[in-house]
Amino acid sequence: MHPGQTQFPYILISENTDLAGGCHDLAVNGVEIGVGVSTFRSESDFQTIYDTLSKIGTDFALIQAEDLNFKGDGRFARVFGHIK
């Protein structure tokens, strides 16, 4: 991590666990995984992450969550709380 560097929150939706694993190299503070949803923060821009994931697999959705306004409980709260 670089001091002062902007970190972007991301949500990856996929049943392919290889894709979630591919996010680890780009993530700051790891990746949280649960119920087909993975969340992480990264200093990388959207296109860099999308291109990296596209090389690993298909059938995924990548969301850059600019202003995460989330309420929930259980596993979803843990997963989304990771990037809040």
Rank of each mutant, 00 (worst) to 15 (best):
D25R: 12
F8Q: 11
I56K: 09
D59T: 11
G30A: 06
D18L: 12
V37I: 15
A61E: 04
H24Y: 05
Y50R: 12
G34D: 12
D67W: 06
I83W: 09
G30E: 10
S42D: 05
E43A: 14
G57N: 08
K71M: 11
S38W: 02
E66P: 01
R75L: 12
I83D: 07
F8Y: 15
S44T: 00
Y50C: 08
G81I: 07
F40E: 03
D25Q: 13
Q7M: 14
S44E: 11
G34Y: 03
F40Q: 06
G57E: 02
F80K: 00
I11M: 07
F80D: 01
F40I: 01
E66N: 14
I63R: 04
N16E: 12
L62R: 04
D51S: 12
E15A: 11
K71S: 15
N16L: 05
S14T: 15
D73F: 09
F46Y: 15
G22A: 08
K84E: 15
A20G: 15
L19Q: 08
G30R: 02
P3T: 05
R78E: 13
F76I: 11
L68I: 14
G57H: 00
L68T: 12
T6M: 14
D45T: 02
S54L: 01
D67E: 15
S44K: 11
L19R: 04
L12F: 06
H82K: 10
L12A: 02
D51T: 03
K55W: 00
G30K: 02
A27H: 08
G81W: 02
H82L: 00
G57S: 08
N29T: 06
F70W: 08
D59L: 10
R41G: 02
I13F: 00
H24D: 11
L19K: 08
G81M: 04
N69S: 13
D45Q: 04
K84C: 10
D67N: 14
K55N: 06
A65F: 01
